[in-house]
Every structure is written in structure tokens, then in C-alpha cells.
Design a binder for these strands. Structure first.
Lengths: 341, 341
DNA sequence: CTGAAAGCGCTTACAG
DNA sequence: CTGAAAGCGCTTACAG
């Protein structure tokens, strides 16, 4: 070691290798314009010295940080965390780091806050989780600021390079198919909140499937929810108290399905004997309530990984994928209806 | 505006204000060595120009990034997210950002990985969540690298400036007190995993309380869990199948309590009529299972905020706090035992 | 394919 | 209390 025990810089590498630091910079940045011999010599010195390029210096010179941002607002905690894990899978061995930024969808200053955040942190790119991923103004802001972005959604919200999407609509169709195969004909729906694309997609999937099976959906068989547990209790209550109550309910997410289970229990309606329930998300609660919930699970971690790769390694094969099929997870909350109807 | 539409730099501010950039730097860094008039003039120019110091440049010059790291391994998703929210509460209006880093407690390379991460990112400081917060080698590593750190824990793991702690032991005592007041005398314990300080504290709290009440704890009234749902099912099964089964079980976390509920249901043991259950964490599942779980809740978000403040604003009053009392959340999973025993 | 010079936007001693 | 010079560790045109 020529220098002391300080961490080595590009200058140390250049000196030891007997080249200019520009040349070292070229191997760091994987420039093609470099002779193989030179590259190998420099790589050896880098390994020998244990040199790691200083990201702060690169960030300053490049006017760009090696930071990915995760923008999210109030989604399911497990979803956020699984997504984070996926992102980390993609960047763990790179120089990138992940910065998280919860935002407030209801604040009128949200876009300004995000603008300021992007301006200040000079992020390499951002990953946007639903529901704010559905905000087209936000995507436009990212483009305007020269910040890469990938949106996670329930449908193809943008070009393939800017989206990782699940197929919610199809999945709800297959959930309804399953209920119909199990003998249900009076099937209720608890919708997610207005303005959420996922809620829309799931409701559309439901209506489409019912139509396909020639089944009627009475207005009283549809209730509005907010994706929160409490709204599931209330909405299911409405369905269960209506005359001619459904023998099965599709809930647009697991939280509301858990609420529906409470509503049934309060009325001494046994699940699944007297009522079948299907949720959506396959969040941990689905497996931990009683009866364990039949639901739709999507590969969130993989989606997070692919989303990050779209930003940091767009040429990578795994970065090409934009569609991520969800699948039905059968547990114990669905049974044949006690009385065929 | 003197310059074009580029974002203004410290030079622009200096020029417009008619001072040297060093002086501008002084007001940015809140140096005391500056005349009030000068400061106010410069502050006016800063506001006028909409100047924001470039964090990358500061990071390079200071050899220190304005980034806080969140190190965690496999804890409850909601805990991580709530903690993140708290941290963001503390740094939202500052130049700091939060970088997340899940780590693998079981990897032999964990400390090396973290060392490399700290070296590369030059973090301002890290926030460490349990269980890895209990790793003293990790804390030593942070000190060695000159990286600030704050550990979250179930007990005072370190000096006050390096800890935000809950009082798990006391809280479990009061949970047991509550069971005893409700008439229970045969109370079982499902422990958390070996090597977790929180598991130890909770078990100690349990044993201490039982001793205080002069109640015996038979070996068959204690079962080992892992903090996972499935382990709760198994452990509760053991307790419920033992002769002279308990009328109440304290579970060292909510996941296992949910598992215990399953075990009871499988045996047609009604909760709370035939069996009372108390959990720990007050995670969302606690309120969403049936019956809603009596549990111990701790102020995670506040702890996150205080932890971040200890790093970024140690003089702040809220940064002084190191102890955060949890409290018993009474719901429906506890009742008087059907038969006094 | 390689290099010398200038620059990214700040801060740090050192003077005064 | 304020400033001129040098430096943090990289990259970017521009030459050659």
C-alpha cells in the first residue's frame, strides 16, 4: 500500500497503476473505449487497494445521485415492505441505495413537496406505489425533472419501461369463476374506494365475470368500501342484512374481507358454511384469521425487483418484464353454499 | 434574478448579497460568528433566489452524507413502517433523507456487509431496529466508523443518547396483573425466540409477576415460540393439550397470539369464555381477528421520531427521551374464567 | 485508446 | 466578524 490507512481514492489507483485518473474513471464507468490490458491492470489495482468509488463525488460531478426513491402513500404495510425487499434484491450488490418517502395523497402541496424532494436529492429514479402511482401529474413531474420513474399498478398505466403491473381484472374474474364453480349464484361485491384504479379494475373484473356467467348483480349486492377493515365490517353488514342475501362475497382486499368476517360473526353467520368470502392481496392477515382466507396473491417482491432493474439496469432481462400475473390462493373461506339457490 | 433559470448556487447568493461565499456558508450552517445584519441580508437573498444548498456538494466537502440509514431484520412489517413514519416526521422539513437497508441476521457476512454499506454511503447515522439492535458488535462497528447510531430496544441497551426503549418487562407484569384481577390463576406463557432481548424481557416480566402474585408456573405452562404465527399454533397446542390446562395464556407477541387463537378454535375452546389470551405489539392483526385481541401497544412512531432527532437534532427536547412506556390495550380476548380454579 | 485542465458546489483551515 | 485559496473525489469536453 503506497498511501496510509486512509481509504484509497481514484488518484491512488491511478498512481499505482501508472495511468491517468481519467483512465481509471473509464473502467469504473465501464467505458468501451479502453484497451483490454489497461483495463485488467487497473482492475487488479482496484481489487488490491480495495478501492470503492466515492458516491458523493460521483454524485456531485454527475449531478445525479445513486439513490432510488420509494414514493408511497398509505398502502398495506406488508406490500410496501415486500416491495422494498424486491428493490433491495436488485440493488444490493450495486452502489445504489434506497430512500423512502411516504407522501400525503390528500395534501394540496403533495406535488410541490415531491418536486422539492426530487430537486434536493437529485434522485436517480423513483419507484411509485399505488395509489399515487396512478397520478399522471406525478409521472409528468418526474419526466419534467429528468428523474427516472417506474409505477406499480393494477393495470398498464404507462409504457412498459415505466410500469410493473398485475392483472387484477383477470384475477377477480377467476375468483368469481371459482365461486360459481363452487355453486354460488348470489355473489356480492365490496368495492374499493372511488378513484383507485385497483378498485376500478377489481370491480370491472367482477362485473365482467358475473355477466359472463349470466348472473345478475342487484344493486343491493354491491357495497362501497374504503380498503380499510372497518369499512369491510360496515359494507358486509349491509349485504348481509339485505333481503335475499348473497351466499358469497368478493371483497376488493383482504382487510375488508377480514371485516366481512367480523360482520358475519356478529350475525352468527358461519363462514364458510353459510357464507363464502374471497379477498385480494394475500397479506399476512389472510392466513392468520379464521377461517384462513381464500384470496388473490401477487408477486410483489418480484415486482419490486423488476421495477428497480428498469431503472438501474434497463438492459437486464428481468427488467423487460412489465406484467406480473397474480394467482388465486385457495384456503378455507370458500365452500359450496349450504342451500343451492 | 441575475442568473438564468438554472438552480442558484452558493456563488449566486454570494454575488447578489455582495459577500463571500464563505459568509453564505456560515449562514447555511448556522454559525454564531456572523453579524445579525449580514445574516438577515443573506437570508433575504436566499429566500428571494429560492436557493437550496446542494446536499451532494456538502456531502463531498464534509465527507459525510445527509442520509439516515434504517437497519432492520425481519421484524413485524407494521413496526418497520410505523418507525419509518416517525423518522420521517423528524426529518421531513430538513435536508435529511432516509435510506433503508434490510439485513440478514443469519448471514456470517452481515457485519462486513454493513461495514461496506456504511463505508460507501457515509451515512450520517443509522437507526437500528430489533432484533439486530441488540447486537453489541454492530454498535461497536458504528462507533469505529464514526457513524452515529440509535438502537431501538425492549430495554436500555446502551446510553440514553443511543437508545429508544420500551418497558416490556413492566408491561408484561401489568398484563399478568390484569389476568389475575380477572380471576385467572393458571396462566400459561408462550415465549419468544431464544437470543431475542425482547423475548427475554417479556418472559422475565411474566415470571416476576407470577412470583409477585404467589402463583406457581409449572414447566408445562411454558412453551417456546419463534414470534411467528405457526409457532403460536404449535405452542398453544402444547399448553392446551397438557393436563390441567391454563385458563389464560400470555403470548410474547400478537402473531403468536393469533396462532394461539387458531389452536383454541381447532380444539373447540372458546375465547374468551374458556380461554383468555393476551398478546404484545398491538399490530393491526390484533384488532382484526376475532375476538379482538387484548395486547400491549407501544408508541413506535414516536420512538422513530425521537431516534431520528437524537441523530439530527440532539439538542431538541424531544431527542432527550429514551424511555417510551407501552400500555395495555384492552379488547375482547380476556374474560373471567368460566370456572374459578 | 489515453491524458491535462477545468469544473461540479460546497467547506476547511488560515489570516486578518 | 469576514475573505482568498485550496481541497473534497470524481467526470466532462477537448485534444491528440
Amino acid at each position: 500500500m503506497a498511501s496510509s490507512n486512509k481509504t484509497p481514492t481514484i488518484n491512488d489507483v491511478a498512481r499505482v497503476a501508472g495511468v491517468s485518473k481519467k483512465t481509471v474513471s473509464r473502467v469504473i464507468n465501464r467505458s468501451a473505449l479502453i484497451k483490454k490490458d489497461t483495463r485488467e491492470k487497473i482492475e487488479a489495482v482496484i481489487a488490491d487497494l480495495g478501492y470503492v468509488p466515492n458516491p458523493q463525488a460521483r454524485a456531485l460531478a454527475l449531478r445525479r445521485n445513486f439513490l432510488l426513491g420509494l414514493l408511497h402513500d398509505n398502502p398495506n404495510a406488508q406490500t410496501v415492505l415486500n416491495f422494498q425487499e424486491g428493490v433491495l434484491d436488485a440493488i444490493r450488490t450495486t452502489e445504489f441505495a434506497l430512500v423512502v418517502r411516504p407522501v400525503d395523497r390528500h395534501s394540496p402541496k403533495m406535488l410541490d413537496d415531491i418536486r422539492h424532494f426530487l430537486e434536493q436529492q437529485r434522485l436517480y429514479g423513483v419507484l411509485i406505489l399505488p395509489p399515487i402511482s396512478e397520478n399522471d401529474e406525478l409521472a409528468a413531474l418526474c419526466r419534467e425533472m429528468g428523474c427516472g420513474y417506474v409505477r406499480m399498478g393494477s393495470a398498464m398505466l404507462d409504457d412498459e419501461e415505466h410500469v410493473v403491473a398485475s392483472n387484477d381484472r383477470e384475477m377477480v374474474e377467476s375468483a368469481v369463476d371459482y365461486l360459481v364453480e363452487s355453486g354460488h349464484r348470489k355473489i356480492g361485491l365490496i368495492k374499493g374506494p372511488e378513484g383507485f384504479r385497483s378498485a376500478y379494475e377489481r370491480a370491472e373484473g367482477f362485473m365482467g365475470a358475473m355477466l359472463k356467467h349470466g348472473l345478475e348483480v342487484a344493486p343491493r349486492a354491491i357495497a362501497q368500501g374504503t380498503y380499510r377493515f372497518d369499512s369491510g365490517v360496515v359494507a358486509a353488514g349491509e349485504l348481509l342484512d339485505s333481503k335475499d342475501r348473497p351466499t358469497a362475497i368478493f371483497c376488493s382486499n383482504d382487510e375488508m374481507a377480514a371485516g366481512a368476517l367480523h360482520a358475519a360473526r356478529q350475525r352468527d353467520i358461519h363462514v364458510p358454511r353459510d357464507l363464502s368470502i374471497i379477498g385480494f392481496d394475500d397479506s399476512p392477515i389472510a392466513a392468520h384469521i379464521w377461517p384462513p382466507l381464500t384470496t388473490v396473491g401477487w408477486p410483489i417482491r418480484e415486482m419490486g425487483k423488476a421495477a428497480a432493474l428498469k431503472l438501474v439496469a434497463p438492459a437486464d432481462e428481468a427488467a423487460q418484464r412489465a406484467r406480473f400475473p397474480a394467482q388465486l390462493v385457495k384456503r378455507l373461506s370458500v365452500a359450496r353454499p349450504a342451500v343451492e339457490n
